[in-house]
């Protein structure tokens, strides 16, 4: 089975306070520590587990991003992914989720993917719109928020997380599956993995290679426009209640006001 996993390099969410450039209105990516999205580490583990249980399968990582994203893809290869495809093109800067899904779908179509794994959402933008977007471009079913994935013959079966439990959902393959964060244990690369990653196939593609018109992606293709960037207003001082027998009622009223009760 040809398994694909869509990944992204992002500013390290643990140490970098993400900033927006007031001029370009885009995420500041220079001068900050960039890492493979920690959510994608989990998704990669899911893909590798599937490959190893099914046998006769390979895992390919696909990403869209600047040339620096190669480093994140090397990490994926070190974890055990078999090969990597990076789409990089100056015209891609400022792409929205629609543009991103368009580009990734174009790669996956060329590759005749059997199963496409994505993280439920990235750990920088958090929109969660790309997996469904890819599925729509390719006309495939989407099994999202999965905490477990199984392939049973020509069906993919997932446990889909819900706020109160889970659903068991199935669809025919090929399909897009999005993996809920924390569902699998990330793989720490072995030395063999790190050294082997340098020798694994690494393809770099441009928009022209994919036959995509630059006007459909990047800032040119984005429908959304950022108008202003402001700071969050400082939080007003809280209210101190002294209990004179009526505090419980006051707290209940307060919670009621915000529909928390």
């Amino acid at each position: 089975m040809k398994i694909y996993v869509c990944i992204k390099q992002i500013p390290d969410p643990n140490t970098v306070v993400s900033q927006l450039d007031p001029n370009t209105k885009r995420l500041v990516r220079s001068g900050v520590s960039l890492v493979l999205d920690p959510g994608d580490e989990v998704t990669i583990a899911a893909a590798i587990n599937l490959r190893d249980t099914m046998g006769n399968s390979e895992v390919t990582a696909v990403s869209m991003g600047p040339a620096s994203a190669q480093e994140a893809m090397r990490r994926a290869l070190a974890m055990g992914v078999d090969r990597a495809i990076l789409v990089t093109d100056p015209a891609l800067a400022g792409s929205d989720t629609l543009g991103t899904a368009r580009v990734l779908a174009a790669v996956l179509k060329r590759e005749n993917a059997d199963l496409i794994l994505c993280s439920t959402e990235s750990t920088d933008g958090y929109t969660g719109m790309v997996p469904g977007g890819i599925a729509e471009f390719l006309g495939l079913p989407q099994l999202t928020f999965a905490r477990e994935v199984k392939i049973e013959g020509q069906k993919a079966v997932v446990k889909r997380v819900t706020p109160t439990g889970y659903l068991i959902v199935e669809s025919p393959v090929p399909a897009v599956v999005s993996i809920a964060s924390g569902s699998f244990e990330a793989i720490y690369p072995t030395m063999k993995g790190i050294m082997g990653a340098k020798k694994k196939p690494f393809t770099q593609l441009s928009l022209a290679d994919l036959g995509i018109d630059p006007s459909q992606v990047g800032e040119a293709g984005a429908r959304e426009r950022v108008l202003t960037i402001g700071k969050v207003a400082a939080r007003a001082a809280g209210q101190v209640l002294k209990d004179e027998g009526d505090a419980a009622q006051a707290i209940a009223d307060f919670l009621q006001r915000y529909q928390l009760l």
Partner: peptide, 17 residues
């Protein structure tokens, strides 16, 4: 969210989350 992702692509709508 899943529905929005697909409609956005199908109708090239523009989407804010």
């Amino acid at each position: 969210r899943d529905l929005a992702a697909r409609l956005n692509v199908r109708h090239n709508m523009g989407l804010i989350t």
